[in-house]
């Protein structure tokens, strides 16, 4: 319980969000949506971290989330820059068509 909120609810929500993220990452073709799904997974993890942190009465969870957010910002900037670079060459961001790096 965090205040009146049971931890299980938090974890349930986190797990559901993460699973949705996995589904998006695995099943979508649009690179941007895949990327968004990854962001969603990170947020699901964040939710779990904050939930656990609150349940254990520490701030560690929030600290980690802080770092996750910072890293997500870095990841987004580089990832989107890569998209721009790819798009300039191939005019698409469909990951099924971006498969030059193969045998």
């Amino acid at each position: 319980m965090i205040g009146p909120i049971p931890l299980s609810h938090v974890l349930l929500a986190s797990g559901a969000l993460f699973a949705i993220g996995v589904a998006g990452a695995l099943l979508r073709r649009n690179a941007i949506q895949i990327f968004l799904s990854i962001e969603l997974m990170m947020n699901a993890a964040n939710l779990a971290l904050i939930g656990y942190g609150a349940a254990l009465g520490t701030q560690q969870g929030q600290i980690i989330v802080f770092f996750v957010i910072a890293i997500a910002a870095a990841e987004a900037s580089v990832g989107l820059a890569i998209f721009v670079a790819i798009f300039r060459h191939t005019e698409t961001i469909d990951v099924n068509k971006i498969n030059l790096l193969k045998w």
Binding site: I2, G3, I5, V10, A13, E39, N43, N46, L47, I50, G51, G53, A54, G61, Q62, V65, F66, I69, A72, A73
Partner: peptide
């Protein structure tokens, strides 16, 4: 919103500003 309820208002604000 859930973060605020989970006693993490700072992270909640950060979540909105950054994400």
């Amino acid at each position: 919103v859930t973060y605020v309820l989970l006693l993490a208002p700072f992270i909640a604000a950060l979540q909105i500003i950054v994400y």
